[in-house]
Design a binder for these strands. Structure first.
Length: 156
DNA sequence: TGGAAGATCGGCT
DNA sequence: GCCGATCTTCCAA
């Protein structure tokens, strides 16, 4: 429901902009793999490695609509979350899916996670990414995408 | 080897 | 709106 694009290595907001490190190594590989990192010592953020060939690009998943069997409501103890079955914010996405750094480098073509094209695209809105004020000219670029008119994306 | 900052979240004022 | 939690990562020295 909400994503952000990170277009390394030139994108100063991307972890891959400082070259290949132990953390960002998976982004320098082929697309279709998970890139998971720990932020603020607390939250696991989930990315899909994208980009052609060696280009270290990734898509951060910032919000999900949850399917049956994922009880985010219990985790958050919030009535709103229960009603919408929503994981809003990258940290909550990681928590809702039970993803942590052990899943870094997971092959999305091998399962159990699968990404499929949608039958019909909803209207998509775009704007600046969240929390990347340090990235100079890249901070203002409209590289955050969310389903338009849906009130459940992470705001700010 | 040390230290500062971080692609955040939720609770409290 | 502000603040604390919590610890990895990366760069400088």
């Amino acid at each position: 429901m909400e994503t952000e694009a990170y277009r390394g290595p030139e994108d100063l907001a991307a972890h891959s902009s400082r070259g290949r490190t132990a953390r960002s190594a998976v982004m320098f590989g082929p697309p279709g793999f998970l890139y998971v990192y720990l932020i603020y010592g607390l939250h696991h953020c989930l990315n899909v490695v994208a980009g052609p060939g060696e280009k270290p690009e990734a898509v951060l998943i910032r919000a999900l609509e949850l399917d049956e069997g994922l009880d985010l409501a219990r985790a958050r103890r919030g009535a709103a979350a229960a009603a919408h079955r929503l994981a809003s914010g990258p940290g909550n996405v990681g928590r809702a899916l039970g993803v942590d750094r052990r899943h870094n480098g997971l092959d999305l073509l091998a399962g159990p996670v699968r990404i499929e094209p949608v039958a019909r695209w909803p209207r998509v809105a775009r704007g600046p990414r969240v929390g990347v004020g340090y990235a100079g000219p890249w901070a203002a670029r409209p590289m955050r995408f969310w389903i338009a008119d849906d009130p459940h994306v992470s705001r700010r």
